[in-house]
């Protein structure tokens, strides 16, 4: 009997590895499980016939993966969704996207739009100053403005996600440079600020007390705050509002399912899940839960540091190098 067990197990294993549902969609995204998990559960309930899965990593890694897949001639992503807006203009220019005018897109408002409908905005991410309340209490100071990050009280205690890895960090730093110049980052360096890894890790490193302050993404910080982390998220007057575009890959063999997901995401239901997870909805008709400490979208857009998004493509390569040079 034992002899027949092994081949059987092997057969099972391979079967299991290749079993497929009838319709499927794979999203490459920089959104984390605390957001994607809720979207997945609701979408599965709504579309039980679509096998939904996602691959989540920092925007830098997602783009590298995508590029490698294009080289290998095998793109596994049906949908791309992250926050490094210039990448979307770049891929659009390369003809990598399938234009799609979702019926839900009419109610979307954002700081950037694509008239050709190759991508839609699915969320308005905001970044603020996330600080460890225990550590802040120890020095008796609470950061409120961008200038507070230069306070000697926080020397060696500030971390910023690596813009080469994190899309939100890239956009944030580009905005801060736009507003305050490279001089601001030179001063941050002088105050001992460190380049961290991804946007999630800097928040966890702040929660653990390894750092006192990080520039953090709204829903990542709020998720941990809800679970009891000793963190607080504050938004300085000059806000970082980063739209997260979503697009269907031209190479996708699963376009109908991909469209179903985008419709769902842009719908009132999808956007309500987005804001309930702690970030801003892109729809005008979805109210936010102010008790979480979010800033209403209208006000956030008004306070946001402006950026010329299409022009930011050219910025990219040089920006990361300059950032490394200034902060490393």
């Amino acid at each position: 009997m034992r002899r027949s067990l092994l081949p059987l197990l092997l057969a099972f294993a391979f079967l299991g590895g290749t079993l497929q549902a009838q319709e499927k969609v794979m999203v490459y995204t920089s959104m984390k499980e605390s957001l994607m998990g809720k979207l997945r559960d609701a979408f599965k309930k709504k579309q039980p016939n679509v096998a939904f899965d996602y691959y989540s990593a920092g925007a830098g890694k997602v783009m590298a993966k995508l590029a490698a897949e294009r080289q290998a001639g095998k793109v596994a992503a049906d949908i791309l969704w992250h926050s490094e807006v210039p990448d979307f203009f770049q891929l659009k220019a390369e003809g990598m996207f399938e234009p799609y005018a979702s019926p839900e897109a009419g109610a979307i408002r954002s700081t950037v739009t694509d008239p050709d409908k190759t991508f839609a905005i699915a969320r308005l991410g905001t970044l603020g100053i996330v600080y460890n309340t225990d550590n802040a209490a120890k020095v008796g100071k609470v950061p409120k403005t961008w200038a507070d990050l230069l306070d000697p009280a926080f020397k060696n205690k500030v971390t910023i996600a690596n813009p080469a890895l994190s899309g939100t960090s890239f956009m944030s730093c580009a905005m801060l440079v736009e507003k305050f110049g490279w001089d601001y980052f030179a001063k941050l360096k002088a105050n001992g600020a460190k380049i961290g890894q991804g946007s999630g890790q800097v928040v966890d490193d702040t929660a653990s007390g390894d750092f006192t302050i990080c520039i953090g993404v709204d829903y990542i910080a709020l998720d941990k705050i809800q679970k009891g982390a000793h963190l607080k998220l504050v938004f300085p007057p000059e806000m970082l509002v980063i739209p997260s575009p979503i697009a269907i890959m031209k190479t996708s063999p699963n376009k109908p399912a991909a469209k179903k997901f985008i419709d769902f995401l842009l719908s009132k239901e999808g956007q309500s899940i987005i804001t309930a997870s702690g970030t801003l909805p892109a729809r005008v008709d979805v109210p936010i839960d102010k008790s979480m400490g979010l800033v209403a979208p209208e006000e956030a857009i008004k306070r946001a540091i402006k950026l010329d998004y299409p022009a930011a493509i050219k910025l990219k390569e040089g920006f990361v190098k300059q950032f490394e040079k200034t902060l490393r």
Binding site: G200, Q201, V202, V203, D204
Partner: peptide, 9 residues
């Protein structure tokens, strides 16, 4: 490894 990298300690 990736969970650690993503700050899902």
């Amino acid at each position: 490894y990736t969970l650690n990298e993503d700050g899902e300690t």
